[in-house]
């Protein structure tokens, strides 16, 4: 490394440190955040500083927040009235918009089906998802070409223990995870996507793999630990 690039590296490190310490003004903080989003290397340097300075956090005392706060957060995220009256899916307020959305989706999907190929723009760039998780030896890479009906998965490391299966899940927005199916025991996999799910696999959508009883989750929701997770991003 020559002197000039070493200097640039130091500047980057210093900026990350100042950001984590919290001393930069708001304009500089926003600039740093843009860099974190755009530059994974720089994001890593920032994460290293977060870890380095975390021990300062011992100076903070824990203070229980007031009881109503969680209900207020739920209300913001899930549109639930605070305090919660009954389970949200038992209320008509949940089912009515859902029914309307479902009918709209049906009409839309029919329309899209009819017009597909006439008006739809050519598919955007391919998507890649790198799936991994803290402390898990399992990692996969998933590839998806928008407009096609299957996602391709390649194992990088790790395999399901005997008598268990890996199951693939799609998570979009605030919606519960939807199963995309059980992965084969070994090798790459091609997981078919019904059109309604294919449309939901866009940049930012999350894919996750959980460890389930043989044959997949018996309940329709992930029951086992998440062994790998990642967000789709354009290649």
């Amino acid at each position: 490394m020559n002197e000039e690039s070493a200097k640039r590296g130091d500047d980057r490190d210093l900026l990350a440190a100042e950001y984590v310490l919290g001393v930069l003004d708001q304009a500089a903080r926003q600039e740093v955040r843009r860099r974190i989003a755009a530059d994974p290397d720089f994001a890593g340097i920032v994460a290293d500083w977060e870890a380095r300075l975390a021990a300062f956090g011992d100076a903070y005392q824990s203070v229980s927040p007031p009881g109503h706060l969680k209900a207020a957060i739920d209300a913001r995220l899930f549109g639930q009235k605070a305090p919660a009256a009954g389970r949200f899916w038992q209320t008509i307020g949940f089912w009515r918009p859902l029914a309307i959305v479902t009918s709209l989706l049906f009409v839309l999907s029919t329309a899209i089906g009819l017009w597909n190929g006439v008006f739809l723009p050519p598919p955007a760039g391919n998507l890649i998802v790198s799936l991994q998780a803290e402390g898990s030896p399992v990692s996969f890479v998933a590839l998806y070409q928008p407009g096609t009906d299957a996602v391709r998965l390649s194992p990088v490391s790790g395999e399901a223990e005997a008598g268990k299966d890996f199951e693939l899940w799609l998570i979009e927005g605030d919606n519960p995870a939807v199963s995309l199916g059980v992965l084969p025991k070994t090798g790459s996999a091609r997981i078919a996507l019904p059109p309604r799910l294919a449309r939901r696999l866009v940049a930012g959508t999350t894919l996750a793999i959980s460890l389930e009883p043989a044959g997949g989750s018996p309940t329709g929701v992930a029951t086992g630990p998440i062994v790998a997770i990642g967000q789709a991003r354009p290649i």
């Binding site: 998780a133 803290e134 402390g135 519960p176 995870a177 999350t206 996750a208 929701v221 630990p225 998440i226």
Partner: peptide, 16 residues
């Protein structure tokens, strides 16, 4: 810490 990491990945699965 592992439990908290596990909870965060569950939250990513939209597990309320």
């Amino acid at each position: 810490q592992d439990d908290i990491a596990e909870l965060i990945t569950r939250v990513a699965l939209r597990d309320r």
